[in-house]
Simulated scan of single mutants.
Amino acid sequence: MVVAVFAGITGVCGVLAALAGAVGLREVRRVRRFGEVARALVKRAPGDVSGEPWPPRPSLQFATSDGRVVEIVSPVPPSRRLRLLDGETVLVSYDPADPRSVVVHRRERVGLEYGFIAAGSVLVLVCGVLLVVAG
């Protein structure tokens, strides 16, 4: 009985993780494929102190095709290899219906989405094994 409850919880968590990864991956692909492209100005985040091990995410400011100026927090953090420096411009794709939905080119981080899908699949597999063993 206890194993079945644990297996059920594991299975539900696995399905949720896999769905989160699939939805994230679908959103990235949708914005890249159907979104509009713009150049965004990188603006330093308030309270950013150089030398911090995990600096806050900078803001991205861009103009939409209908002339609105949008400023959002970057959906991806800066990394050592792909830094987002204050004043530089980056290429973004955005959803015209919701310009806050942004994908930064060459920084999509789809590996994270695939990781969620893989981890969720493993948890669902563990759930199945537990149910077979307990059954």
Rank of each mutant, 00 (worst) to 15 (best):
A7P: 01
S79L: 07
V28I: 15
R100Y: 07
V133N: 07
E27Q: 15
S65A: 15
P46D: 08
L85E: 15
L84W: 10
I117Q: 11
E36T: 06
R26I: 01
K43N: 14
D66R: 12
A97H: 14
E113Y: 08
A18N: 03
R39G: 14
L19A: 14
F34R: 13
G35P: 08
G115I: 11
S74T: 01
G8N: 10
R81M: 12
E52W: 02
D66I: 11
D98S: 13
R39N: 13
G128T: 04
L131N: 00
P78D: 02
S101C: 10
V124Q: 07
E27D: 14
R83S: 15
W54N: 14
V103E: 04
V92T: 00
E52Y: 01
V15W: 09
A7E: 05
P77W: 07
D48W: 12
L130Y: 03
V23Y: 06
E108I: 01
R106S: 13
S65G: 12
A7N: 03
D98C: 10
Q61Y: 01
A20M: 09
P77A: 14
G24Y: 08
W54T: 09
A7R: 03
G51R: 01
V90F: 06
G11Q: 02
R57Q: 08
I117P: 03
V133I: 09
V49W: 05
S121D: 08
R106P: 05
I72V: 15
L60F: 00
I117T: 09
D95T: 03
C127L: 00
T89S: 14
S50D: 15
T64N: 10
V42M: 04
L19V: 07
Y114L: 12
L85Y: 12
A63V: 14
R107M: 14
G47Y: 04
V37Q: 13
V76D: 03
I9S: 09
P99F: 05
G8T: 04
V104A: 10
P55D: 06
A45I: 01
A118V: 02
A38P: 07
G67S: 07
F62C: 00
E52G: 09
C13H: 08
S74C: 03
L60C: 03
L60H: 01
E113M: 12
V5M: 05
G111F: 05
V76A: 14
A7V: 02
V133W: 06
G120K: 00
L125Y: 06
L16Q: 08
G21A: 10
M1Y: 06
A18P: 07
R81I: 11
P96A: 11
A134W: 07
